Computed example of a mutant assay.
Amino acid sequence: MRVSIVTPSYQQAPFLEATLRSVLEQDYPDLEYWVMDGGSTDGSREIIQRYAPRLAGWVSEKDRGQTDAINKGFARAQGEILAWLNSDDTYEPGAVRQAVEYLQAHPEVGLVYGDANFINAQGAAIGRFPAAQTDYRRLRQGYVHVPQQAAFFRADLWRQVGPLDPSFYFAMDYDLWVRLARLAAVAYLPGKVWANFRLHGEAKTIAADDRCWPEMLRVHRREGGSVFSVIYAKYWVRKLVGPLIRWRRRQRLRTE
């Protein structure tokens, strides 16, 4: 089974090479890799050019942001399994092979994911993403727990529910998980660390995660959800404690 991986990138030169190497050094032979750069001026283009002979293709041109870049990459993809890896995150060795093996053995599963470490700007592990098993019902309640960096899904399902909604800045992955889970089973493999989720000062998770929950509520309402629901309760709790969470994340990064 061919695997197509897309990396959207913009102005991430300090981390981009580690991302590229983590994909290209996977031990899975049938891997197609697309890099979609948004016209970076920080040296990213030169980094991509060094690895161009090993890529299925790449572009460096102005786009409409991360979601647009991912959609453009998947529009070119020929694989039966898809994933995207942001240009400041990395895969762990063996991640792609293990994901493919699981999907081959479980044809009823449309999305599989493992664990992901939180890492700092220097690449040191500083925690673990709170991954857990979820499904369509629990996703609609805001029980996400899917580390996007460690998620792989079937291309035939993508063709039914894609592309990503470009109106989402933050929750486009949550929106996709809901749409995939509506059609097929979702599987979490605990203990399988497949990726690293980098937290740094410019990361969206640090800089703008207060935009995530309102976008998730849009998905909830689209799926017929009520304001009298678990996800709305979680939203109001997160709204109250969100500033403290973001402050603690920034403090943690400063002390690592």
Rank of each mutant, 00 (worst) to 15 (best):
T41D: 14
D42H: 10
D42M: 08
S44P: 03
S44K: 04
S44H: 06
S44M: 07
R45S: 08
R45W: 08
R45K: 12
R45C: 09
R45M: 07
R45D: 07
R45F: 09
E46S: 10
I47R: 05
I47A: 08
I48G: 02
I48R: 00
I48F: 01
Q49N: 10
Q49A: 13
Q49I: 10
Q49L: 13
R50I: 01
R50Q: 10
R50W: 04
R50M: 07
Y51F: 15
Y51N: 09
Y51I: 05
A52W: 01
A52V: 01
A52M: 03
P53K: 00
P53C: 07
P53N: 04
R54C: 07
R54D: 07
L55G: 02
L55V: 00
L55W: 00
A56D: 09
A56R: 09
A56E: 11
G57T: 00
W58N: 00
V59R: 13
V59G: 06
V59W: 11
S60A: 04
E61W: 13
E61H: 15
E61F: 14
K62V: 13
K62S: 14
K62G: 13
K62W: 11
K62T: 14
D63W: 13
D63I: 13
R64W: 15
G65D: 11
Q66P: 14
Q66K: 14
Q66T: 14
Q66N: 15
T67P: 13
T67E: 14
D68M: 10
D68F: 12
D68Y: 12
D68I: 09
D68V: 08
A69T: 11
A69I: 11
A69K: 15
A69W: 12
I70Y: 11
I70F: 12
N71K: 09
N71L: 09
K72G: 10
G73R: 09
G73T: 05
F74V: 04
A75F: 06
A75R: 08
A75S: 12
R76I: 01
R76S: 02
R76K: 08
R76Q: 04
A77W: 02
Q78D: 08
Q78T: 10
Q78P: 01
Q78M: 06
G79I: 01
G79A: 03
E80L: 07
E80W: 01
E80S: 07
I81N: 02
I81M: 05
I81S: 02
I81E: 01
L82P: 03
W84S: 14
L85W: 11
L85N: 10
L85P: 08
L85K: 13
N86E: 15
N86M: 12
N86K: 12
S87Y: 05
S87V: 02
S87A: 15
D88P: 05
D88S: 06
D89F: 04
D89M: 05
T90G: 04
T90H: 04
T90V: 08
T90R: 12
Y91P: 06
Y91H: 15
E92T: 14
P93I: 05
G94E: 00
G94K: 00
A95F: 03
A95H: 00
A95W: 06
V96R: 00
R97K: 08
R97D: 03
R97W: 01
R97L: 06
Q98I: 03
Q98F: 07
A99F: 04
A99S: 04
V100P: 03
V100W: 03
V100H: 00
E101P: 03
Y102T: 07
Y102A: 08
Y102V: 07
Y102L: 11
Y102P: 05
L103I: 02
L103H: 02
L103F: 06
Q104M: 11
Q104N: 10
